[in-house]
Amino acid sequence: MNNRIDMTFERLKKEGKKALIAYITAGDPDIETTAELIFKMIEAGADAVEIGVPYSDPLADGPVIQRASARALRNGTKIKDIMKMVEMIRKNSQIPILYLVYYNSVFIYGVERFMKEAYSAGVDGIIIPDLPLEERGEVFELTKKYGLHLIPLVAPTSHGRIKKIVENAGGFVYCVSSTGVTGERERIETDIKSYLEEVSKYTGLPKAVGFGISSPEMARNIKDYCEGIIIGSAIVSIIEKASTKEEMFEKIDNFIRSIKKVL
């Protein structure tokens, strides 16, 4: 089966490059601007897009993405709007698209309905930050049924669990850089090299590192040990701070290019 995530990592591997996975919260500042921003990020060199489905209680997120979620919900962003937006993007681009979605959103929407509609819209992978190995049974088979990858998350505290977490998984392994929630960090204290080497012992899947990566320097320090970098809060922060749309687009373009250059 040709999942766009797999094809992208294969292509990048041949090119000797690393993937830039760019996160954005859907509906912040509004769903039309989110779509425009996604096209800007693709143009600037993003290799995959992770679309955050805004949630009232984003437990795994720091203040920046919490605020983005709150803004998106205040202006009434619904799952069906996000599905439509993905459909529209898919008509114009073959970039891999993932959803970052909290489990209650999926559960209430109906797990099968969510996966089916996501697949139909053109989504390739699903990341559920509050659905660990022990609970993913309710979801795993249904993502498979619709050709979606349920992206497994590992953390630096996952000792002894990694083997089971990556078992039967597809797409890539989301390697959480350090303990804590999402958000920019001045530095990452984790010994990334030995952490990612441990993950590699159990899987041949690409590894993408996320949480706290906010600059080209940080991306450069990590990229040799993995196949991809995930950037979220740094992008959302630019969106939050920009006073005009032009400024927002320009800064996003510059930022994505600055990261892509080192990968």
Binding site: A60, D130, L131, P132, L133, E134, E135, L153, H159, V176
Partner: peptide
Amino acid sequence: GGQYVPETVMNAL
């Protein structure tokens, strides 16, 4: 019931 939490705290639980 269950354990719907981020992976980071699973070993701690």
